[in-house]
Design a protein around this nucleic acid. Structure first.
Lengths: 181, 181
DNA sequence: ATAACTATACCGTCCAGACGGTACAGTTTG
DNA sequence: CAAACTGTACCGTCTGGACGGTATAGTTAT
């Protein structure tokens, strides 16, 4: 019945290009044409792998879920504690998870309901891990500190270069230590 | 004396409708047609006041600047201190400033550079006021807590109803007290 | 009289998606 | 072995609709 398929090299390229465009130029400008061009693929080729834009989004969200789950597991096992790990990982470092989160954020901003649902689930998992570390009374404070870091990354990432957000982390970790006693 | 022109009632209605649509359905769906319809104004009437969409955005940002400045002044004068005032005001309460901020956030997410610049300026002002209250070492921690609240409001506001975010504030204020000593 | 509109028709551009075709890897059959 | 065939992985073009914006003629309120 068929034959050995050759490797779909375009598929991953398309997904990465979509992610990059979401991060750099926003949802509005992440058109199918732009994605295809960035991926070095024809529009027809893109639509062969992803029947429509929604499919592109779904696969991106699945990737996000996988990365977020991995990260949450690492967070639960972190020697420095879940809270410190969380704050440290909330600074923009261009990791696959960072990129997936910011890309998805662009979609959530456009009122994409499914994206918002996924985010809520990820946030809940984070909150649980942090609460297990610092207690339920302080968990929200820590969670929101990290979210604030993401919020600021969102508003500056892209064409604009990213400054010394890494320095902020030390401040936040110091604040965390102070909360902890 | 003589013939005074009648009041431009449509202008404010258009601006409010634009803001509401940005908040509820995102930038993508906040089209000129949709704004005019929501405002109960003809498209011609809309374009009579705002020659193009960019003009609509500019006026919205000016309104944001005004409200933000008022708020920062109130923050500096707050009896409970700038930090507590900031946290308290960061929770979504559907105030004119809240609405202006979330609406503008939708534009920033679409990589609108001018919006991002304005945001950076507002954030800086907030940071200054907070630093004057709790000292420079803790200012970022407090600022990011508030930003985190906004971040979460952004991702849930809209069609979805807003839950008990007000309860979170008490947690954050308790954390703030703990940081303060 | 004039500002503040309404209503409608229209234009150029952009975009999502459909569609038909091509190149090629492997499989089957004479 | 080789022609015939099959399914995968693309390419390039087209279309229908939406959107931003223009134009213009008429209407209402002051």
């Amino acid at each position: 019945m068929g034959c050995m398929p050759r490797k779909p090299v375009a598929r991953d390229a398309v997904l990465d290009a979509f992610e990059t465009l979401l991060i750099d130029v926003g949802e509005r400008a992440a058109t199918l044409d732009a994605v295809a061009k960035k991926a070095g693929v024809s529009k027809g080729g893109l639509l062969y792998h992803f029947p429509n834009k929604e499919a592109l989004i779904e696969v991106l969200l699945d990737r996000l879920d996988g990365l977020a789950k991995e990260d949450a597991d690492a967070m639960a096992a972190a020697a420095e504690g879940a809270a410190a790990y969380f704050i440290r990982s909330s600074v923009w470092a261009d990791t696959p998870l960072d990129r997936a989160i910011v890309a998805a954020t662009r979609l959530a901003e456009v009122a994409h309901q499914e994206t918002r649902r996924r985010f809520a689930a990820i946030q809940q998992r984070w909150l649980d891990e942090i609460a297990a570390d610092v207690g339920p009374g302080l968990a929200k404070a820590v969670l929101y500190m990290g979210d604030g870091l993401y919020f600021n990354a969102m508003l500056s990432v892209g064409p604009a270069p990213q400054g010394g957000a890494a320095a902020d982390v030390e401040e936040l970790l110091a604040a965390l230590e102070r909360l902890r006693r």
